[in-house]
């Protein structure tokens, strides 16, 4: 039987490196027999080595690659197996050790990376429009933050950031007007439009129907809507979005009409003795009386 010391040159090199690979766990006996197949061994292994191999296999309860390699030994394999085959075996081990033995090469993985389809599953038309380059140039506005906060997937930090952002002064109509349109134009999709609609304050968008037992008539009179209108006004003011500068909605119209009717329907009855003649009152006299006695 050959040993590593009896070999020289490339065969000694292969014997050393392959044996060391087995020792270190870099290779397994199966890795060797993938290249040194039974056909290869039958052609190149001497009959004496075959005799020992057959005997060992017959004696063992199980025949596997380890038994073959342990019986034939790496130096004998490297002594008789053609060098190109040994090289192919060594090269495969090295490729695997260097991490190049994967079926999918890295370039293919990088090419597939930009496709984020499984992440959120937006409509296909949204992905090109919602490129990361669009949002950064424009500072986020209060309306956008409101929209983002209303989204289920909005990150928690968005809510604290929205609190100090609005300026203490009321927004001017010129600034407030284009805000709702900005998200829609940036995304250029129906999703943006639907999200803009979502930004409409809930109390104004759809008045809740109060339960009215026994009264099945729809709420068509102004008097029936009065309580809702009065409750909606304070909720709208802190929103900071004045109705001026944007198209009025049906809800706005109803609120204003309702207030006007309230003022008209309850006139105060005043007696004449309750009236004050301000021209005769000393508290209102600041200078010389007017020539006509009237101010």
């Amino acid at each position: 039987m050959a040993s590593t010391s009896t070999l020289s040159g490339p065969r000694a090199f292969f014997a050393t490196t392959l044996a060391r690979a087995l020792e270190l766990g870099v290779a397994t006996p199966d890795d060797l027999l993938v290249h040194a197949t039974p056909d290869v061994l039958s052609l190149h292994l001497p009959r004496g080595e075959w005799q020992k191999l057959i005997a060992a296999c017959l004696a063992a309860p199980r025949t596997d690659a380890r038994l073959v390699v342990d019986t034939v030994t790496v130096p004998v394999l490297c002594e008789h197996v053609p060098l190109p085959i040994l090289w192919a075996c060594l090269a495969q081990l090295a490729q695997r050790a260097l991490g190049r033995g994967l079926v999918a090469p890295p370039p293919a993985m990088t090419a597939a990376a930009p496709v984020p389809a499984p992440v959120v599953a937006p409509p296909p038309a949204v992905a090109p429009a919602a490129t990361p380059a669009a949002p950064p140039p424009r500072a986020s506005t209060a309306d956008e933050r409101t929209v983002e906060a209303s989204r289920p997937s909005a990150p928690p930090p968005a809510a604290p950031a929205a609190a100090p952002a609005p300026s203490p002064s009321p927004p001017s109509p010129a600034v407030a007007a284009p805000l709702p349109a900005a998200p829609a134009t940036a995304r250029t999709t129906t999703e943006g439009a639907s999200r803009a609609r979502t930004a409409e304050p809930a109390p104004l968008g759809d008045p809740p129907a109060p339960p009215r037992p026994g009264n099945g008539t729809p709420r068509t009179t102004l008097g029936a809507r009065r309580p809702q209108a009065a409750a909606a006004i304070p909720a709208r003011k802190p929103d900071g979005r004045a109705p001026a500068g944007r198209a009025s909605t049906a809800t706005d119209f109803e609120i204003e009409t309702d207030l006007g009717d309230t003022w008209k329907k309850e006139p105060e009855q005043v007696d004449d003795d309750q009236l004050i003649d301000w021209s005769q009152n000393e508290e209102t006299q600041t200078g010389e009386p007017l020539p006509g006695g009237k101010r």
Binding site: S8, G9, P10, A12, F13, T16, T17, R20, A21, L24, G25, V26, R96, A97
Partner: peptide
């Protein structure tokens, strides 16, 4: 395969290649 095993294997290959005058 551990990094240490790979290092030792490559060291063996380089040493054997030099010893056997492969390179």
């Amino acid at each position: 395969m551990s990094i240490e095993a790979r290092q030792r294997w490559f060291a063996t290959m380089m040493e054997s290649g030099l010893t056997q005058q492969i390179f």
